[in-house]
Design a binder for these strands. Structure first.
Lengths: 248, 248
DNA sequence: CGATAGCTTGAGAGAGGTCAAGCCAAGTGG
DNA sequence: CCACTTGGCTTGACCTCTCTCAAGCTATCG
């Protein structure tokens, strides 16, 4: 049964998928009719864990989530950040056991959608399957970009790259603008995402501030010199495929 | 029109997809009837380049291929290695412009399958779409593992991890066994895959040899102590989802 | 039999890590 | 309302893993 809260949640999903590839009215309505239960999460609270075999997907409604892997001696690698509209564990639809964990990076609200319902949706609307597939492929494109950063970019460039990426992703869902966006992450989070230590993140951040490229106060990032930040990062936004719909 | 050479090529694809999720007879036959043209490639020869908008996918038949990104000053990051049976650019079906390049890592033979034919196949057999989707998801799982290595593993562990991974992937298609497999890569290739310099790869390799874990002569890797290699790498093979069919 | 690609090794340098301490703001409880 | 705790930020001193530069070696090939 649809209810107001879910309508809101699923409208966010419709909007995201529509931006990825375009939906028909029937598809839109079918998505809005998906069953969903919402939940409020505290920072660091796990949503699914490495090894789990989930039977539902998670749609981020408010706040940020992140995927991560743990290694021995407390080492952690963050694999991705997710913002409202994202379905970070979409892959669980076809890969049954989790090879990493997913948690709330901040206080967050998420909606859970049963796999059954999604499979049914996909069967009835092959085009929706294509859109979701495409979403997972863009996810992979971001992984490739992060890999390239960790392997071949300096800490400075890598951090600049992450900021460019998050800014554009947020802007695409109207959560950023005028070179200003939320960045509700601790320096430890940044470190685990960039493959650095928090101490070095602190120093690199200082350097970025020092060269006048950006300001980071509280949980707000202000990019003071976008072009220079892009240049320092060797950032090319095509991999995000944000304007795909218009380009088709 | 099917011909003997293509039958061979597509049989390899059938086998790979079948191992991923299981196919019906009709699906098998439809795949075998796909049009394909084969081509012999020299080492380092590009198959598709960053920025291209390909209209066909590439199936590796013999030899190895690799995907990579180039940065300024000749920096290169290898994103993945591909062996016979793999379709390294499957994502091009839904992401129209390449965000990285694909080339032959060794002398290789590949088959090209037009996107049109694949789309038609997918429309007629939704289950095949699921299998292909699943294949791209496993691809992404490998990216996550590589990211984790670059961010949080030492050069030694990272290299050990790569060897474990390649051994199991080759074994799954009967190209390895008895702790012995081909590894037709230069130290520079390894360096670009691991985010290291070739000098350091050389020294790390020496260390791995020195601790008696493996032998690498010519283009053949012999794992002398599998368990210790796995341990050094903190390697857990579940992310490869190799035995999925049996597990379902 | 040069030429070329790949492998090996040494010496020195640098990016980023480790350890440790101090600081600040936001709770929390008495 | 003020100690006290806690999580996160900042900085210094020192260390080390990996890089850079450079040279020599080896095998393959036209």
């Amino acid at each position: 049964m649809p209810n107001p809260a879910n309508d809101h949640a699923l409208a966010l999903l419709v909007r995201k998928l529509d931006s990825i590839a375009g939906l028909s009215d029937k598809e839109r309505q079918a998505i809005l009719r998906l069953p969903a239960t919402t939940k409020v999460l505290q920072p660091k609270q796990d949503i699914v864990r490495d090894g789990d075999r989930p039977s539902r997907c998670c749609l981020v409604l408010e706040g940020w989530a992140c995927r991560y892997k743990l290694l021995s001696e407390g080492r952690r690698q963050i694999l991705s950040f997710h913002i409202p509209g994202d379905v970070p564990d979409l892959q669980s639809l076809h890969i049954h056991s989790m090879d990493h964990s997913l948690c709330a990076a901040t206080k967050a609200v998420v909606a859970f959608i049963p796999h059954d319902a999604l499979r049914d949706l996909i069967n009835r609307f092959p085009n929706v399957a294509t859109v979701l597939w495409r979403d997972t492929l863009i996810d992979a494109a971001v992984f490739r970009q992060w890999m390239t950063g960790m392997g071949r970019r300096s800490a400075y460039a890598r951090m600049a790259h992450l900021f460019c990426e998050m800014y554009l992703k947020l802007e695409a869902v109207s959560l950023a603008g005028e070179h200003r966006c939320p960045l509700p992450l601790t320096q430890t989070d940044l470190a685990d995402a960039l493959g650095l230590t928090s101490v070095h993140v602190n120093r690199t951040l200082k350097e970025l501030r020092g060269s006048g490229l950006l300001t980071l106060r509280g949980s707000t990032l202000v990019v003071d010199r976008w072009d220079e930040l892009v240049q320092a990062a060797e950032f090319d936004p095509t991999y995000l495929h944000l304007e795909q719909r218009a380009a088709e």
